[in-house]
Design a protein around this nucleic acid. Structure first.
Lengths: 227, 227
DNA sequence: CCAAAAGTGTTGACGGTACACCCATGC
DNA sequence: GCATGGGTGTACCGTCAACACTTTTGG
């Protein structure tokens, strides 16, 4: 009708072990099986659904390609430059998502789905490299003021694990003492009272995210239930 | 084709004098002349253009309804809830814009276009009240960390004028001394060397925005030339 | 006891706020 | 001179980075 195709894509972040067993910020890519950019890797996505909300479509595509559910999902940007697809006008509403590491371990992977380190991506189809760069920038920026790192972890975690998430995403070491105080001051986590034993050191406390407070985003959109 | 209509709308902010001559944060609304929401006020916008970029469409619609050019334009959000229009599925990519006050004085206004104070809006069509709330939140938040207030002013301005912009948008008084130091420390304005005479007080310096530094947004998108 | 990581305490630099005070102009 | 706003100086306070130090486990 309007001559413009509407698509939904998602940048999916997870922390996965690399060859050496070290956790790396990674994302899944899907191989394009038809032109344009045939055989090139691209972001998971597809045509917008006439009935679903855009966020639901993003979550569904995420589940279809990875078998996972997002623990965090947020709209990134609507990309609509006229020449971004050689086949015609396409406007892509892009979301970004976080998935838990223990879930990502059992993620689908195969001939047409691959996980790659976020900072070592091949040349992707369309403008998807730019999109990932922007999503990375948003993730790193938002980690500074919103408490979303727990979305990479399970329901309970130690502060050392939470700090490791920050360190991997931000790519720099953080002072354990100061990190502890910042998190405790934010009031977003509560101690479960349990401890983790088995390490060759003092047993750390277990925490869980406090769901009763702190919406990550105080914007009017979250109040309206829009993600 | 997909059964989804793609629209572009814009929240246009300007500082305009109210009845008492005091500047108020205002925005233009257009009267809907057909169902749904016939005769209701709504945001300027229309169907996405197959050839133009989304930002260009937003700027063109802005010019068509107000006769003005935006001094700042940025994408706000893509609204796409399935039930936001009673006539069918519509996804609206919404932009927000700032226009200069001296331009806004000669803005078009008539039977089907009206300017209203941003915090005293009537009930608008569709979800446009929510959209304006979000745009207001973004404007106020962004004013705190990005130097965009000059977009409301002419090419040269005094620090008192710039401070007044902040005070009106943020709706609270600011300390002139501290405001001066913050702005000067940001390095985003330079003194022209000229002064404004005629006031019953010491003549203030004139400043202009320093275009050589400080992109308002250091995100990868602005580096790629996308607004 | 030793190693290692958890957790606490202390200090100094920095940025923002409050506010006293001086400057330059019109009347 | 006086009122008015422009512009400067300074003290205080909270936040954060740096780092010394204590605690609790496994071996």
């Amino acid at each position: 009708m309007s001559g413009i195709d509407l698509a939904v894509s998602t940048v999916i972040f997870a922390l996965r072990p690399d060859g050496d067993g070290r956790l790396v910020l990674s994302l899944p890519l899907v191989r394009r099986i038809r032109p344009p950019f045939e055989n090139r890797w691209s972001l998971p996505g597809g045509a917008a659904d006439p009935v679903e909300s855009l966020a639901d479509t993003a979550a569904r595509k995420l589940a279809e390609t990875t078998g996972l559910e997002p623990s965090y999902l947020e709209q990134l940007y609507a990309f609509g430059e006229p020449n971004r697809s050689p086949t015609g006008r396409v406007v892509s509403v892009v979301y970004w998502a976080l998935v838990r590491g223990d879930e990502a371990d059992r993620a689908l992977e195969g001939e047409n789905v691959t996980w790659r380190a976020a900072d070592e991506l091949p040349q992707l189809a369309f403008d998807h490299n730019l999109i990932v760069d922007y999503a990375l920038w948003r993730l790193r920026t938002k980690l500074g003021y919103a408490r979303i790192a727990h979305a990479f972890l399970g329901p309970t975690f130690t502060l050392a694990e939470l700090r490791q998430v920050h360190e991997i995403v931000l790519q720099r070491p953080l002072d354990p003492a100061n990190f502890r105080r910042q998190i405790e001051a934010s009031g977003t986590v509560v101690a479960t009272g349990e401890h983790v034993t088995g390490g060759r050191h003092r047993p750390p406390r277990l925490y869980r995210y406090d769901t009763t407070v702190d919406p990550v985003d105080p914007s009017p959109l979250s109040a309206a239930g829009i993600r």
